[in-house]
């Protein structure tokens, strides 16, 4: 999987879990939770969905490493 492909999967999951968000709203370097008003529940859902999609679990201690779209893509890419 390329970084671009991972990014598409992440965006797809975000749009699925928070259908009122538009793709254009998702910035690469903004904090996902605060910029998109994603609460802790939806954030956990996104990570759960990513685990189902690509088989990587993000432990709680690593949450700070997946705070932006860019960081999240890099995190998964490094562990694939």
């Amino acid at each position: 999987m390329t970084k671009e492909e991972i990014k598409d999967v992440v965006i797809q999951q975000i749009l699925e879990i928070a259908p009122d968000i538009e793709e254009g709203d998702i910035e690469l370097v903004e904090n996902l939770q605060s910029s998109l008003e994603i609460d802790s529940f939806d954030f956990l859902k996104i990570l759960t969905a990513m685990n189902e999609q690509i088989g990587i679990e993000v432990p709680e201690v690593d949450y700070y490493k997946v705070d932006t779209l860019e960081h999240m893509v890099n995190y998964f890419f490094d562990r694939l």
Binding site: T48, E60, V61
Partner: peptide, 17 residues
């Protein structure tokens, strides 16, 4: 909670809420 969640898979995690 952190210790509990560390032992669990992601779908069984408990949020502080």
């Amino acid at each position: 909670l952190e210790e509990l969640n560390a032992k669990r898979s992601i779908k069984d995690r408990i949020l502080p809420a």
